[in-house]
Design a protein around this nucleic acid. Structure first.
Lengths: 148, 148
DNA sequence: ATAAAAATCTGGACTGAGTCAAGATTATTT
DNA sequence: AAATAATCTTGACTCAGTCCAGATTTTTAT
């Protein structure tokens, strides 16, 4: 329901706009879609919507932890609701199709995932994110992310 | 030495060219550099070198497994020698600086990495790569990679 | 060693994802 | 209801990477 999204946005100190509701709806509708697909979907819900608004909101929602983004090598960024359930992703080398991989929590973290969706897996790519020593004390050189 | 690289290329059925030797050298010199930095480095070694040759060769070398590439969200692709030692990467959210994380093999795969280079880690991103069910039987829809 | 065939390289135009910026519109606060 | 703050629109722009066609270099066959 829409009321859920409204209170969700308010809880995070984000003003409630048609654009935001439509984008949230679109991300839930088709998880793993890219900005362009979200634009198209959300436009139908919202009537009109600019490319920029989509990017602005995807960033805002990501920053608040409401949605999550991944960017598989060679593809544009994909977005999904942030369920905080420690799942990972599997991406098809051939067509780029993306699915979720769930871990069995508590167990050794999943390089032998519990359900592969029929994919033939050949590589597990792991990237850790954080702050390097110099940026911990002096996070000046912001080149991305937390831009505003 | 150069002879090593020459035989390495021959072993993989790649013709030995000045461009390739210079690019290999550059990747070894500064692992985790992007195409543009490799272009600049390799140009110094090779005299002249086109952007396209860099991309062509980075792809060829990657395909043969001689080098490896990663593409952290929001950054251009980075290249490194493929040492086949099952290491992963850590990327600074603030400045993009990238370092290697080595696993202790045989142990539960490393979401608690052995040496963090002083990074403050806040997320482990895992992407599995492979072929989806439909592309296993019919890998027609090549949108990337093995383009030629 | 040499010619023919195959692979690679060059340069320049182009694509597509994403960003910038300034003015207009919409939400929120008072 | 007015003032302020946040968001949205439009359009130009950047940057990584690709496409293409002709020129050059490397390899293979003689």
């Amino acid at each position: 329901m829409n009321q859920d999204n409204i209170t969700l946005l308010q809880k995070h100190n984000l003003s409630v706009t048609a654009a935001r509701l439509a984008i949230l709806w679109a991300v839930r509708q088709h998880p793993h879609s890219d900005a362009d697909m979200i634009l198209k979907q959300a436009r139908q819900k919202a009537g009109s919507l600019s490319k920029q608004a989509v990017y602005d909101n995807l960033h805002a929602l990501t920053q608040k932890g409401i949605i999550r983004s991944i960017q598989p090598m060679g593809h544009s960024a994909r977005y999904e609701p942030n369920e905080d359930d420690n799942h990972h992703h599997i991406v098809c080398r051939s067509c780029g199709h993306t699915a979720d991989i769930h871990c069995e929590m508590g167990k050794a973290p999943c390089l032998d995932p519990s359900h592969t969706h029929g994919f033939a897996i050949d590589e597990a790519e792991v990237i850790f994110w954080g702050l390097c020593p110099s940026c911990q004390t002096n996070p000046v050189n912001q080149s991305n992310q937390t831009k505003k």
